[in-house]
Design a protein around this nucleic acid. Structure first.
Lengths: 242, 242
DNA sequence: GAGTGGTCTAGACCACTGC
DNA sequence: CAGTGGTCTAGACCACTCG
């Protein structure tokens, strides 16, 4: 028999799409609870088990967070758990260290070829560039240079950055409504230039990690391109090959 | 009411434990199919749905591989998919490159403090050290120094390494019955020493990635400790922050 | 067509949270 | 205690693979 449905998509995936759509439309805010499984089942006229499977996948994708007895919540970058998902840096000595982000500069520019291609915008479109220092236990460890599409992050300035307290993604989420879902990192080893060396308090020419990251929001839309230079004198990039 | 089961474990997790046990005991070899869900359900006297959930988790853990219409298979390092799970190196230019492993040295030694602690063996226990070069498109990219517990890998020699064709883990799996389940990597930037620089054909002092890895087999038992030095002239370490 | 995994349902009951 | 997610079951049916 001819295969009649080459694009077969099970019901639970369609439900997942609908919930995703509601999430993207902002029907529920990050940190808030979404309706219970039974309510959603009624809303979409499917069984609770089907809703359950949809939510299961979204929880695995880190879009939702299940808490037994309480409900299902929209994942948020304000949650401390989200922090280490995007910053895979741990102290060599072990333990946990307090970190602070120190904004250095923030300026407007026009997208060059590489930035435009990476961010999926047009050549010459406005972009915002942020430079900031990341400290652990008050010692400088990372210098980041961050490229953002100007349209999406209109209103971002050095003052806004200085006034914010949580992580950068937490700010993006609450102030600009942009939720980072996923990111890709490409890591290389480079020699420290003079300016970076001074900031990180290492010798010029010291080996540093160059961590290039592209972050995506809903619909796999790229919304951030950044390059971090990591001093690995007292820290290392940790990766779990599950 | 007093909580009577503080160590509550759902049935499907117990089933998972039983299947894991059978897997560990070698009841089915890597690449082979395990019994169908209905057979396992009968064997353990539970419903098919419960077995299904156990297998779901094990598939998510990369221990099993489901193939619709065919069966469920024991994951194997001979599977090309497993290769990139443990070597997160991609060409800067994109595309796929043929890789070859060139064994350089293989000798016996006694475990020092660090090796003993990392591998969970006693100080002075026999270990095997392997040095090898990894090439992509016939160009040297990685130098690995690999520490293995001598007991587990008795019989390993330079000749054995030279005779093997697939990946190292594929050899460990088929010849020594050791399956790597999971690994942790810690990445730093270092300067190339003279010997390494020559091997990788870069200048002495060039920045390299130092990738330290501990690999675990069943029961989270560490069975490999390695340090790789990666030249990132034409390649980078790729990481997906899902 | 037989056998496998994959989906969907409906219902019962359990574990956890908070009032 | 009511409400939430979590488990377990049994059965029907679908999609895929292979002989």
């Amino acid at each position: 028999m001819v295969q009649e449905s080459p694009t077969f998509s099970p019901l639970y995936r369609q439900i997942k799409g609908l919930i995703l759509q509601a999430l993207e439309a902002g029907e529920w805010r990050p940190g808030e609870a979404i309706p219970s499984e039974t309510e959603l089942a009624a809303r979409f006229s499917v069984s609770q088990g089907t809703v359950r499977k949809a939510i299961d996948e979204m929880a695995a994708d880190n879009l939702l967070l299940r808490r037994q007895g309480k409900g299902t919540f929209v994942a948020s970058h304000s949650d401390p758990r989200a922090f280490f998902r995007f910053l895979r840096l741990v102290p060599l000595a072990g333990g946990i260290e307090p970190s602070t982000s120190v904004p250095l500069e923030c300026w407007r520019a026009k997208a060059g070829q590489e930035a435009a291609r990476t961010l999926g915008i047009k050549l010459g479109d406005p972009i915002i560039i942020v430079r900031r220092l990341l400290q652990f236990s008050s010692k400088p460890v990372v210098v980041d240079e961050i490229y953002l599409p100007g349209e999406t992050f209109a209103g971002l300035s050095l003052d806004v950055l200085k006034d914010s307290h949580g992580s950068l993604y937490s700010l993006f989420e609450s102030r600009f409504g942009v939720r980072m879902i996923r990111a890709e990192e490409r890591i290389r080893a480079v020699a420290a230039d003079r300016a970076t060396a001074e900031l990180l308090r290492v010798a010029e020419g010291s080996p540093l990690l160059s961590v290039e990251r592209v972050s995506y929001t809903y619909g796999d839309k790229p919304v951030e391109w950044r390059r971090g230079l990591y001093s690995t004198a007292d820290h290392c990039y940790y990766n779990d090959l599950g």
